[in-house]
Design a protein around this nucleic acid. Structure first.
Lengths: 339, 339
DNA sequence: GGGGGTCATGTAAGCGCTTGTAGATACGGT
DNA sequence: ACCGTATCTACAAGCGCTTACATGACCCCC
């Protein structure tokens, strides 16, 4: 069952250098307890033999994987990719490898998540990928955990973006443009973010004296958004004049549906999204930009603190968002600044 | 230096169940050499103690990490993200974890790549992230390796997409629309793909009796594409009428530059890209779609074969691409099919 | 010139698992 | 009553490293 290729071990280096393995280990890790002549000899032999210490041996002895994990639904769309990137960048800087696990919308990722948990010193969980039970079980095992864009679970740290604030800002902006017949496209059950966005949308409309509509079910992709918007724009007695979409992909689908129905944007209907994907810019879509990279970076930083130190209190943080107004929500004088 | 949180080990399970650790191991791994009464007892105790076998212990004993690595430049844009996703999906299916390493354009990732190599049973390297020397060194160590969208290095398997074929198809298409004054935007040094695309572009124009232009330097992002296109469209005596851009981001920048220069697309100038990013659709950009997901999936499959079996011959494969014609390369009757 | 440091190195005990091998037990056939 | 065989279990070696502790050499100074 062993690997075919023989790798050179610390024993061979020790033998060739005429010292014990303890000395090799010390010499190569820069301990001061080695005479410099010995150190040089060991280094020369190690170089000659192309010795690379086994990560497994080292990890087992140290009781540290020197690795972090991250679980996410997928990487289509820049949203999660940016989070992963921010996470990886900080982790790499700290000398930790990153293990990924994409759930790909599979029903029960618990087994794979548990497996991942056994390979890392800490782990970030992104969105609604792992159910509360599994999260609690992992947290209870003592594995440092950070939850991202996901409802908190007792002892784990949690970071989210400001869905509440951004939804309110968005709705007020649309109200300011004179829109009154709102629709919300996207199923709150799809993700915790959508849940929060819809809730704030509802509250904000109520506060404005309007009757908030039920959300229109839609998965978080272009095709679903197209279908949902088509139904809403053509199949109802009272056509809405503002489609608040749970993310940009739904909104992009909605823009197509509007065009298909012969409606102009933003004249006949306004459309907004969330995420500020690259396509949003070319589609003139008003949307909410979120600090995804920072989300990942903060997660990696927090984990590091939990892994090395033993800070006790549970942390929660809400990252600020930015409303990006383009043409799809009404006419503006200001032109988007070139980036 | 050991971890604080005490994890339960096989010894405790053995003690509680009144058997040896060997029996625990066999019982839990489903060996037939265990009486079913014993197995049940062990399983009950393991469950009660929430015993999770240490991955490190197991890997060390088996000489297998049960993990694959992948190195890529970044994850902005769907290109690499899709590859990673395809790779992860297949690897996970095969019970292997995935370690990622983003080079983030850092100058010398060799140390981190070597570290990664020590943590996995096989590894994919994407694009021009690791220099030939480091690749050769890893390959020589016997680590199964697959190179993606990158020039081959002796013993490693290589998979690329059909840059040559797609470039020729693209140029012929533009020639068919009547364009004759071509420019190529993108620095061949940026990536092996760009090198291949430019070479085929050049050859194809020569074959058509035209004098191929030198490439116009540009990094693979929107801002660089904008700047390069602006120079080409405004700063030259003979303005080109077809901008073949090395990827979609450059092309999107070029579209903006054309608009900024008061030129119509495709009337005054045609623009094309590569990758078919989501924004390309909304920008009406003609481009080349590549099977990125398949690229990653194939890499994982090949690695698995190399890791488990010992197939000797070096493999090379070129994946087919698909020209996606939209409005930016001339007027078409056909409308893109809804996806 | 012997006691007490300091410095360099070796010894060995883990870290948590897998697995080859040997031993124990029970059973059936003769 | 005995032995061969099948079935189960324990023993122990190993995987490749780190590190506490022991050992020994050497030097300094009273």
């Amino acid at each position: 069952m062993r690997h075919d290729r023989r790798t050179v071990t610390i024993y061979e280096v020790a033998g060739r250098a005429g010292v014990s393995i303890a000395t090799v280990s010390r010499a190569l890790r820069g301990s001061r307890l080695v005479a410099s002549a010995t150190r040089q000899r060991v280094e020369a032999v190690a170089e000659e033999l192309r010795f690379r210490p086994s990560r497994l041996g080292r990890s087992l002895a140290e009781g540290q994987h020197a690795a972090n994990g991250i679980v996410f639904p997928d990487l289509s769309g820049p949203y999660y990719a940016e989070v992963v990137l921010g996470y990886e960048e900080v982790a790499a800087e700290l000398g930790r490898s990153v293990l990924i696990l994409a759930t790909h919308g599979r029903p029960d990722p618990a087994a794979k998540v548990l497996d991942l948990a056994g390979r890392v010193d800490g782990m970030a969980i992104l969105g609604r990928t792992v159910d509360d039970g599994a999260v609690a079980r992992i947290a209870d095992s003592g594995l440092p955990l950070v939850l991202l864009a996901r409802p908190p679970v007792h002892t784990a740290d949690t970071i989210t973006t400001d869905n509440d604030g951004s939804a309110r800002e968005l709705v007020r902006h649309l109200l300011g443009h004179g829109y009154r017949r709102f629709a919300f496209l996207g199923s709150p059950a799809e993700s915790p973010d959508v849940t929060g966005r819809y809730a704030a949308f509802r509250d904000c409309l109520e506060a404005a004296g309007l009757v908030p509509p039920q959300p229109v079910a839609s998965a978080l992709n272009v095709a679903a958004g197209y279908a949902a918007a088509r139904d809403v724009l053509t199949g109802r007695p009272q056509r809405p004049d503002a489609l608040v979409c749970a993310n940009d992909e739904i909104a992009l689908g909605a823009l197509e549906a509007a065009a298909g129905a012969g409606l102009t944007v933003p004249g006949d209907v306004a459309v907004t999204g969330w995420d500020d994907v690259m396509a949003a810019r070319y589609a003139g879509l008003t949307t909410v930009r979120q600090p995804m990279r920072e989300l990942g970076a903060t997660a990696a930083t927090w984990l590091q603190e939990r892994i090395t130190g033993s800070r006790v209190p549970v942390r929660r943080q809400v990252l600020r968002t930015q409303l990006v107004t383009r043409s799809s929500c009404g006419f503006h004088e200001d032109v988007e600044v070139k980036e």
